[in-house]
């Protein structure tokens, strides 16, 4: 399996909040911290505005991994958006897990504004872990 995946370049989608995680991403850039280019960031104002339907749509359309990045618990600019996000993701991942639908491809991470390093490391880990999982079975399945 691992060998098959050597050349596999996963398609990764990131929903990053405007306040903390986007700042961290920028800081990673300023500090020239390298991470794989697989991630395609989509800026949202808050992790709490990331509807599970975006995640499902991404997954079913063939994204190999989806990551949601928000402020640390308590730090949300909008008071509680990240707590709400966590509940939604908990529900969604439970469903995916129960139905055997690639729950491990959905990640939720808190990355604060000062954590440029954590951003880069997370992107590296995420890419690596999804590479290990191999291409999403949804990628080639036209009948979903």
């Amino acid at each position: 399996m691992a060998d098959d995946n050597k050349d596999f370049e996963p398609i990764l989608v990131g929903f990053f909040c405007n306040w903390c995680t986007s700042t961290a991403a920028d800081l990673a850039g300023t500090t020239r911290l390298q991470y794989p280019p697989n991630i395609r960031p989509i800026r949202t104002m808050c992790s709490g505005s990331v509807d599970p339907i975006y995640i499902l749509r991404a997954l079913l359309s063939g994204a190999d991994g989806i990551i949601i990045g928000g402020c640390n618990p308590g730090d949300c600019h909008y008071v509680s958006g990240n707590y709400k996000a966590r509940r939604r993701i908990a529900g969604l991942k439970t469903i995916l897990d129960t139905l055997g639908l690639e729950n491990d491809r959905v990640w939720l991470k808190w990355i604060s504004a000062a954590e440029g390093q954590k951003f880069a490391v997370t992107m590296r880990d995420f890419t690596e872990k999804i590479k290990e999982l191999g291409p999403s079975p949804f990628r080639k399945n036209w009948s979903v």
Binding site: G74, K84, G91, W107, L108
Partner: peptide
């Protein structure tokens, strides 16, 4: 989905 606690569902943070 209308409630939340500050400390919960840590397992879903990956």
């Amino acid at each position: 989905l209308t409630a939340f606690k500050e400390e919960e569902f840590k397992g879903f943070e990956k």
